[in-house]
Write a protein that binds this DNA or RNA. Structure first.
Lengths: 216, 216
DNA sequence: GTCTATACAACGATAGAC
DNA sequence: GTCTATCGTTGTATAGAC
């Protein structure tokens, strides 16, 4: 019996995943992938007859990695659903910092590069977004007692994602965190405003609001 | 005296600008630009010795087009600064619709494609963002009487831009407007919340808030 | 300033031995 | 399943006539 089913394939996918994130899909050559993965080009074509099939495998792998690589550490460390969301946003900030802005959101990059030209990839990218949204939506759902009735977890999750993607784009363009931090601060103000308004809106309405400038 | 200084150059820049917006910088070939512009490749290299110099010219042209192509029609039609901002956001929505999601934000696309690999382009892209931000910041500045004291026009403008870029990304990925509209609705709620809180916070504080669900 | 022809490299993909 | 050699195309950029 074969010991562990081909880790050559895994090495290829892992290497391609990194290179697609750093340089994009188009600019990454198959020869570069083979070289960095330490395999031969022949093996690469054995597992992935076309570059697009490799791309699909990479995007499937990204989906599988959402929990272990993106969410788990934060979800384990923090119980508060709202805190989880902002720690998640902070994690993207840390990644930008650790890579000196070279590593943005891997899915967002591919979204812009490939939505138009690669319909199959587009669907897989959408699934990646959808799963991310579900996780954040779940956070808002768990915090729903603290939110006003009209607050829709789904809509809030979308707002978190758009803010993150836009903020990452600006951080990378300016190569500093001023715009990133500004966007997150506004998002935080919005969400805390929702929580605050709910806190102060018992059935006997009318209590006035707290100081409008929040500390953190 | 030369009648109009070389419109060959202008045709090249205009054509390249469109193609870079649709297919990206890398995937657009110089031969394709020459063909679509109706000029010969030789002319292209006469005006732009390298592809990167053409890219720089395109990004400079984008800067020059911000007012006439992006802002002017809206600024002429609407006086209210907050309305201008949301009409601007609606204009991106209309562009997505008119092009069936193939035409996102030209600057955002190039930002993601080129920030890492093309430092010169990155600076010009940043200048494009900065000018856009200034225009929106000015709107918030003009509306400052309606906003709370702590509201910073610059920070709000950044929030509008990040929301727009993220929303465009999701609209193109999902090929529908649900996420786009959700993000803009949240942004509107946030900004109207700021205006509302100011309205209700005269020096004699305490007046309670309006219905939290807004109609439009 | 325009045009043709071409150099030179990199790309994705294939063939076929082992 | 691995490896080498190579095909055919496309890309940017050049050379040189006009």
């Amino acid at each position: 019996m074969p010991p562990i089913q081909s880790n050559t394939r895994d090495k290829i996918v892992e290497t391609a995943m990194e290179l697609f994130a750093f340089h994009g899909y188009g600019p990454t050559g198959l020869s570069e992938i083979a070289r960095k993965a330490g395999v031969q080009q022949g093996s690469l074509y054995h597992f992935f007859p076309t570059k697009e099939e490799l791309l699909a495998a990479v995007l499937e792998r990204r989906k599988a990695l959402l929990w272990p690589d993106v969410l788990q550490a934060i979800w384990d460390r923090f119980d508060d659903p709202i805190e989880r969301i902002f720690k998640l946003l902070d994690q993207y900030r840390q990644m930008l910092q650790a890579t000196e802005f070279s590593h943005g959101c891997p899915i967002g990059n591919l979204a812009i590069e490939l939505t138009e030209s690669h319909p199959n990839a587009r669907e897989l990218i959408a699934e990646n977004f959808t799963n991310w949204l579900k996780a954040v939506e779940q956070c808002f759902h768990e915090a729903s007692r603290r939110l006003p009735e009209h607050a829709e977890p789904r809509r809030l999750a979308i707002f978190v994602l758009t803010t993150m993607e836009g903020a990452v784009m600006l951080a990378r363009t300016y190569r500093d965190f001023r715009a990133y931090d500004a966007a997150i601060a506004s998002l935080r103000e919005y969400i805390e405003g929702l929580i605050e308004s709910e806190t102060n809106w018992g059935s006997p309405r009318q209590i006035d609001r707290k100081a409008r400038t929040r500390k953190k």
